[in-house]
């Protein structure tokens, strides 16, 4: 069997065991459950971002826009009595449907221009959500029906769903990276002009990548909404939902399959350590730590480990 096949099976097996085992192991540990759920959601966003930012080389700041959209689509549907499973699917669909025209338009821009344009999407959605208060509750936010039950049951449920989503997103990344699409994205990242010259339909492939990346992000928002039970525009459209996944991937290893996993774990751990110890200065302390780490390991933890191993 190829090394790719082994890695895919390893991800599926370890991921499946985590989905089945962790909720049992962590039962009665609300703090750890919350931590692992946060990790899983961040991992979903990081692995999604990696498809566009890592594989394709387009540094998107739109992750948070799809996260927020998914949260609102699911919250509104659930408020109308729609089953949570359907609400998650609808959130993913909404993300993908929005990503198609947005990606097609915005991916014509490169570098900083693309980054700034993608950042605007969240801002626009936030304004629209706040303005359309009949549907969204405006700045007052929305409470998700059905979240009023047993908090322990809800926490365990959110943990399982977010873990499963994280495993699927990592597998999606692997499937893309090893496909014809991934080969084309590789070429686009390295040299888009040359890619076009050898027959790569860059506009189409970039748009596919953008759509595929937006779907898990939107579903993550939906899971988050159901978990937290209350959402408002400043929370779910917070730019940090776009920034944290990027930092996580940079920490773990850009464009690698497991980089998002390692990076999300480091990020959540750092956030927790700093948060507990220097409460008053948490954001700044976290920032400094991250910058230091990136200075020491510019390629991210995974690639640095691998190259150190091959060197020795």
């Amino acid at each position: 069997m190829t090394s790719r096949g082994r890695l895919a099976i390893a991800i599926a097996v370890i991921g499946g065991l985590a989905c089945a085992g962790l909720p049992l192991i962590l039962a009665g540990e609300p703090y750890l459950m919350r931590l692992v759920t946060m990790f899983s959601l961040l991992l979903v966003l990081a692995a999604s971002w990696n498809i566009v930012g890592g594989f394709t080389g387009y540094p998107s700041f739109a992750t948070g826009a799809f996260f927020g959209l998914g949260a609102y689509v699911a919250a509104i549907l659930q408020a109308k009595g729609v089953d949570w499973r359907l609400a998650l699917v609808a959130a993913g669909l909404a993300g993908g449907i929005l990503a198609a025209p947005v990606g097609y338009g915005v991916l014509r821009l490169r570098g900083h221009y693309f980054a700034v344009a993608s950042l605007m999407l969240g801002t626009i959605l936030k304004e629209l959500t706040t303005g359309w208060s009949d549907l969204t509750g405006g700045g007052m936010g929305l409470t998700i029906a059905g979240a009023g039950g047993d908090p322990e049951v809800l926490a365990s449920f959110a943990l399982r769903v977010s873990l499963a989503l994280a495993v699927l997103t990592v597998l999606l990344g692997a499937a893309i990276k090893w496909s014809r699409l991934g080969f084309g994205l590789d070429c686009i990242r390295m040299n888009e002009t040359a890619a076009a010259g050898i027959g790569v339909d860059a506009q189409r492939l970039k748009t596919y990548a953008f759509i595929l990346s937006s779907i898990p992000s939107a579903v993550a928002g939906a899971v988050y909404a159901g978990w937290i039970g209350y959402i408002d525009p400043t929370d779910v459209y917070d730019v940090m939902w776009s920034v944290k996944p990027i930092v996580a991937v940079l920490l773990g290893g850009v464009g690698t399959i497991l980089g998002p996993v390692v990076g999300a774990a480091i990020f959540v751990a750092l956030e927790e350590i700093v948060w507990r110890n220097v409460l008053s200065f948490s954001a700044g302390g976290l920032g400094v730590l991250i910058v230091l780490l990136l200075l020491v390991l510019p390629a991210g933890v995974l690639p640095s480990l691998v190259s150190r191993k091959t060197r020795s």
């Binding site: 590789d186 070429c187 390295m190 040299n191 040359a194 890619a195 076009a196 027959g199 339909d201």
Partner: peptide, 23 residues
């Protein structure tokens, strides 16, 4: 577009070579 013409059999090389550096 170039990609379409390339698939139809119209190819070119670049004056400044344009390899994919990580491949």
């Amino acid at each position: 577009k170039p990609h379409e013409l390339a698939s139809r059999g119209l190819m070119r090389t670049f004056q400044v070579v344009q390899p994919f550096n990580a491949l």
